[in-house]
Design a protein around this nucleic acid. Structure first.
Lengths: 125, 125
DNA sequence: GATCTATATTCTTAAATAGGAATGTAGTTT
DNA sequence: AAACTACATTCCTATTTAAGAATATAGATC
């Protein structure tokens, strides 16, 4: 993976916010919408941008598309994600996003943890 | 310093190459030209871009303008520069640039080390 | 199968960016 | 002061990028 391509993905604030959230675990699109407070197109397109370039992976889960960081990451990527996580803690936007993430009902997400089966078809966001 | 602004600086290969070289110490513009093999306008404009955004500093030294990383760097910046240095070692372009740097005659540069006075006015590159 | 929910894609427009050619400028040498 | 060196800036063009409105699609529910 070329270094520049990683930075091209990181050079937009919306994408930084998405990645910062994904560092906590997989999330579906509607959660990003709720947390960022940005319109659906915007979120969807930036996720698409990241997906095309291999920074995130997507899988369908019922009605929802769950995004996650790739499990196997080349060194350049993990190094930069670690750096992002380190630095994001200092800046208000990212801290606020993480705070909102914690308050979220993640019922439609695989993040609802410990094996609880995902409730397909339930209304989500 | 906003994180996005740092990444905006990093999302161009020419600028990455410049910064990667500057991690070794101060350099003047003509050295960048020689090492990168890119036209003067290109080098100069990217250095200007980095300077405007505070990623590099410039000082005049006789006929030459010497560029250097800022001495005092906010955490986001030093973290990302360290990450860049770490990752750049894996990619051919950056290794080649460093190799060329080592072969250079740095007579016009402050890099010519150990207090040797800089020979103003001598032809440089 | 009609409807609904979640998400993606297309179309269009505005703005940012990169690159080069040509020219300007500051300092140096003769 | 004329000529030269190192570098910056201006002007122009092509490409990329971001954003939103509108529309399309895939799967779930009724």
């Amino acid at each position: 993976m070329k270094l520049v391509q990683i930075y091209e993905c990181l050079c937009d604030e919306t994408r930084l916010r998405l990645l910062n959230l994904l560092l906590q675990g997989p999330l579906c699109v509607c959660h990003f919408q709720t947390i960022l407070g940005e319109p659906q197109v915007k979120i969807s397109k930036h996720l698409g941008y990241l997906k095309t370039r291999g920074l995130v992976m997507a899988r369908r889960e019922g009605n929802w598309i769950v995004y996650a960081l790739p499990e196997k990451r080349p060194h350049e990527l993990s190094a930069n994600l670690a750096c992002l996580q380190d630095c994001a803690g200092d800046q208000a936007v990212f801290r606020r996003d993480l705070a909102r993430l914690r308050q979220l009902d993640l019922s439609c997400s695989p993040l609802n943890a410990a094996g609880t089966p995902v409730a397909h078809g339930r209304r989500c966001c």
